[in-house]
Computed example of a mutant assay.
Amino acid sequence: MTTLDEVRTFIRDLPDTATVASLQEAATSRLLALDEARRPVITPGRTGQINSGIRPAALRGLTGTVQQPNRTGTRFDFLLTEEATTRLRHRQDPDNPRFTIPDDVKRYRLVKVPATCIELDDPADS
């Protein structure tokens, strides 16, 4: 197997920018494949939590069930648990609520939550 030092020497000795660019494209492709392999598969029915990367902050940490994706699979509807629905209802500014949740709604559906903001409960099963 080639060592990292040998690879670095090989790259340093490449003759021109086109060759280096070709190598860079291959490395980028490999990085994307490795990253995708580590990413959990988000499918409807899986349970999870909204992570700290989302805005507004009132949605952070809420739990629920993944619902249907958008056309590109980059956003999902997310059905909150009863507890999370209650938390969201009370986290908002009462004078200017972003989400209107009627009192009789037990599980509120958030629409178009970015896939990058959903952490699944059981990523080992993905």
Rank of each mutant, 00 (worst) to 15 (best):
K112T: 09
D16S: 07
E82K: 01
E119A: 14
D104A: 07
C117F: 03
R109V: 08
V66S: 14
P123N: 06
N70D: 15
P94A: 04
A18C: 00
R109I: 12
T100P: 03
R46I: 09
V41T: 10
I42G: 06
G45F: 03
R109F: 02
D13R: 05
R55F: 09
R87S: 10
G48I: 10
P56N: 09
T47Q: 14
I54H: 07
L59R: 09
D13P: 01
V113M: 06
T100G: 05
A18F: 00
R38L: 15
N96G: 05
G53D: 13
R55D: 10
T72G: 07
T116W: 01
A115D: 08
G45Q: 09
D103Q: 11
Q24L: 13
L31H: 08
F78M: 00
L59K: 12
R107A: 09
A58D: 13
F10W: 05
A84Q: 05
V20A: 03
S52Q: 11
S29W: 11
A58H: 08
L31D: 14
N51Y: 03
Q92A: 06
G61N: 11
E82C: 01
T85A: 03
T17Y: 00
P97A: 07
L32W: 14
A57W: 07
D77V: 04
N96K: 15
I101A: 05
L59T: 15
R46D: 09
L110P: 07
L59N: 12
K106A: 14
A57M: 07
Q49Y: 02
G61T: 14
T116E: 13
R75I: 00
F99V: 11
R12D: 06
E119S: 14
F78G: 00
V20W: 01
A33R: 14
P114R: 11
T81P: 07
D104Y: 06
I42V: 14
L31E: 15
I50G: 05
P44A: 12
S22R: 03
T28W: 01
I42L: 09
S22P: 00
L31G: 03
L120A: 07
L14A: 03
G61L: 08
V111H: 13
R87D: 10
D77W: 01
T72H: 06
R107P: 02
T86Q: 05
L34C: 12
F99Q: 05
N70Y: 07
I50R: 08
A124H: 14
L120D: 08
R55Q: 15
